[in-house]
């Protein structure tokens, strides 16, 4: 019983992190129909920005809990600078090209950003553990969890709800939905497509950077962290159904729980969990849990 509780908590904690790092990918795919490999480097940029700002903030000796706000600012800054630059500078030239080409363009951007982050931040690790240790512990099932993990859960939940509200309840959100359903008709109805694209890409980048910034306090921020995130995020999004927000949440939960169970009960399988879940889901539901069948065009 106790073990089940611990598995559930571990699964939930990991799922919230997975959701944070993958929801931006799903959003960008939903609107732009581009699977953005550079998502991983945007995650890394967010992590570096968050870590370096927190280090500066902590060295200055300011009000400690403010570091959490600093993380948010770092994510916003990183995403709002990098996102539009990448979309306007590079991605937009590939609209209408084959999906493979677009994929490879984002892969090229990923390669370039990998070395750029090294040029900006060097190869030495950054540590921003101050916020991680700030909030103390919570004891569940006889073992200690950092309260930060539950803050992450809260951030993930707020992000999910916020996005849902944005897409369903705001005017811009409805325009985005229209574009998702039919870009051509949307343009005919007077939608400024490139504005929708650049805004969505910026929002997706902010989300990637947010995932990075809030991960920074619990890891050592080093070159190469972006690569690891890409496949995880892809798996979550494919399991959930590409372009679906609910899907990203469901995919994150499923993978998170299965992985936690594997770690506790069958550690041998840990390496395979993500891929086995992905293969199993796709075999049963070829478009993912929340994937929508699109009209066949003849």
């Amino acid at each position: 019983m106790n073990q089940l509780l611990i598995i559930a908590v571990d699964g939930l904690v990991f799922a919230s992190w997975l959701f944070l790092v993958s929801v931006g990918l799903s959003l960008i795919y939903g609107v732009l129909r581009i699977l953005n490999i550079a998502h991983g480097s945007l995650f890394a940029v967010g992590a570096y920005a968050g870590a370096s700002l927190v280090v500066a903030y902590s060295t200055a000796g300011l009000w400690a809990p403010g570091a959490l706000g600093v993380l948010l600012v770092a994510a916003l800054a990183a995403g709002l600078v990098a996102g539009p630059v990448i979309e306007r500078g590079i991605i937009r030239w590939t609209y209408g090209r084959e999906p493979v080409m677009q994929l490879l363009v984002t892969f090229s951007v990923f390669l370039i950003l990998e070395d750029l982050t090294k040029l900006v931040w060097g190869v030495s690790p950054y540590y921003a553990y101050q916020p991680y240790q700030l909030l103390g512990q919570v004891r569940i099932g006889g073992i200690d969890y950092p309260a930060y993990s539950f803050l992450l859960l809260l951030v993930a939940a707020l992000t999910g709800v916020g996005l849902w509200w944005f897409v369903r309840r705001t005017r811009f959100g409805r325009v985005v939905v229209a574009v998702i359903h039919d870009p051509e008709i949307s343009v005919a109805m007077g939608v400024n497509l490139s504005r929708v694209y650049v805004t969505t890409f910026a929002l997706g980048s902010v989300l990637a950077a947010l995932g990075g910034a809030f991960t920074a306090p619990m890891i050592s921020v080093v070159p190469g962290i972006g690569v690891e995130v890409i496949v995880l995020a892809f798996a979550v999004v494919v399991v959930g159904g590409l372009g679906s927000l609910e899907g990203a949440a469901a995919g994150a939960l499923l993978i998170g729980l299965v992985r936690a169970a594997a770690v506790h009960l069958l550690p041998v399988l840990e390496l395979f969990t993500i891929y086995l879940v992905m293969a199993a889901v796709l075999l049963v539901r070829p478009l993912g849990l929340f994937g929508r069948v699109e009209a066949r065009r003849i």
């Binding site: 611990i6 598995i7 908590v9 571990d10 699964g11 904690v13 990991f14 992190w17 073992i143 969890y145 993990s149 991960t215 619990m218 890891i219 190469g224 962290i225 690569v227 690891e228 992985r259 936690a260 770690v263 506790h264 550690p267």
Partner: peptide, 11 residues
């Protein structure tokens, strides 16, 4: 390079 060890630490 997993980077996240919450579940392993619990175990």
């Amino acid at each position: 390079f997993a980077g996240e060890y919450s579940a392993e630490l619990s175990a």
